[in-house]
Design a protein around this nucleic acid. Sequence first.
DNA 1: TATTCGAATGTAACCGATTACATTTTTTGA
DNA 2: TCAAAAAATGTAATCGGTTACATTCGAATA
Lengths: 343, 343
Amino acid sequence: MSSTYGDQMTTIRDVAKQAKVSTATVSRVLNNSEKVRSATRDRVNEVIRELNFIPNAAAVGLQRKKTKTVGLIFPDASAYYFAEIIQGINRHLSQNDHQILISSAHDEAEEIKIINGFVRGGRIDGLIMMMPSANGNNGFRIPLAYKIPEVFISCEINAPRSTTILLDNYNAAKEMVEHLSKLGHKRIAFIHGGEHNYDAHERYRGYMDGMKACPADEELNLVVMGNFTESSGFQATLELMKRKPTPTAIFAANDAMAIGAIEAARALKLRVPADLAIVGFDDISSAAYMDPALTTVHVPLRRLGHLAAEAMLKNLKTNLADRTTEKIIIPLQHIIRRSCGSE
Amino acid sequence: MSSTYGDQMTTIRDVAKQAKVSTATVSRVLNNSEKVRSATRDRVNEVIRELNFIPNAAAVGLQRKKTKTVGLIFPDASAYYFAEIIQGINRHLSQNDHQILISSAHDEAEEIKIINGFVRGGRIDGLIMMMPSANGNNGFRIPLAYKIPEVFISCEINAPRSTTILLDNYNAAKEMVEHLSKLGHKRIAFIHGGEHNYDAHERYRGYMDGMKACPADEELNLVVMGNFTESSGFQATLELMKRKPTPTAIFAANDAMAIGAIEAARALKLRVPADLAIVGFDDISSAAYMDPALTTVHVPLRRLGHLAAEAMLKNLKTNLADRTTEKIIIPLQHIIRRSCGSE
DNA sequence: TATTCGAATGTAACCGATTACATTTTTTGA
DNA sequence: TCAAAAAATGTAATCGGTTACATTCGAATA
């Protein structure tokens, strides 16, 4: 059985021999660490280029105990949402000579197993976790045992010396309710995204507090549980419109459910926004092209990824003792379009 | 500066010492390679569990010249589309004890540099490339120089001993035209996705050949270039409706552009499908929830990813000499909804 | 020109696993 | 019971780099 690299594996020894220096010198040139006479450096670089030599990552990793790789743990759902974030992360990391190693699983036990394997196997230098279903209370404490930098996205783990990046879901949701309220709506329903999802829960909290501040008709229960999919938004809306009195506005915890809600309104022969205002959250690319165009909250996913990568790179450069515990909250902007009846 | 692993790095020597055997025996237990007396095996496994030992990936990789990692090269665009594929790939690979290393860049030179670094640096055992803009003619020959398994998605590189996975865009597009034709349409326009995109081009070919077979009013040029975004579909439709005679149906090369087209029709006060039929391609999750629900071609992205992973794992087990050149074509299914006026 | 000293370079141990080969232990059979 | 064969285990070289320490070189100074 032939080797993976076949006969093309070039080692530092090949370079050393051809440049008539020791491997130590080649290594020094590679890492421009100590002083190397410029004539020697040029000669070595010439050979490196000639042989198309690239140091073996495993050998470097073994010695340095660094892999230039960041692990990414993401839930196995909602591809679009996570893909944008990952792109943001990857863009910034690869510009800084780092790679990402991805894993995803919904089963939390499996998740922990994977993380453990990554870290203890020395595969990664740092860990970026997006686990909206994890919080400090449900036993997700494993990462804290490690000493590698950790960045958490959309979950409140509260691990010391880690960086947490959150969206300001709460305020954005609250303001959205206030906006609907200002338009005269009193019976504003909410389609939840899932009890155990951090973002969904924060949006729900914002909705609830927003409602408290509004002059409401009466004590209403206008919250229905969805699961972030179009079809759940559709079902939830059908469900909501059976209640008496019926809501005059629906706030869906994400755009996909808002799309389902619009479709349900249509099935019920209700005009949006005249009979029923509908707003979402996320500002997915098609939101502007819905009928009616969807009022929503813009979530800068790539920027979120960029911030995560930035925090990771910073922590990677800082030794454990000097790392601080940080929480970055991204303010969110409303996008008022036609579906709320504002224009 | 403390080590990445801090004091928690457990080595095979620690295990050997505690189990009172040599490192060779521990290694044999780990790889259940040769025979080990079961009493010894149990004792070693016990210690491994006790110490939570996981072999250092770099050390294993250095020795074995295998990383259990597959490189993924994807274009830096259309997150949703690629995310679904990546999920499909990842799901299957991680079930088989492999990880993925992702990279993406639009600049082809940078792309080649990254691939080269991955392969020559021994970071990956195999390469899955999705480069719709690459084809055998535009110089994308680098990968052929390597001996690791290669799987290409949506591009025709024709590298020997590699596996290529393609969607049957051509036939699906042709059949879509035939479907529209059967509904009585004679002036069917096409919104292209990009000249250099493989999928877009195949869909275009299918459209053209479908048109040839249809009884057309006259020699029409009803093709406009888009770029797979909603806004380009919007613009393209505005453009198309200025032509005389105006098209009665629009076939967009993907759903996003079809969404833009529907919105444009609306802006022009045209009813869909009564005044203008509009169909797409991809079957994104919101397609069923558009108004009108979008007729399109379903593209099984996760399955595509799964097939790519499967092919990769198979090739990984086969040595170079025994690998065959394979081309897998995935047949595509139409989803007839309301936007084509069929119901 | 000889001496000194810092800069440049080389030597070899090491990172943590695997594995060919050597050695020890156990089993088998006469 | 003991020699021979088979099985289990150990020893040490190795993978391809990095780096502490040793050595050599060259320039500056006397």
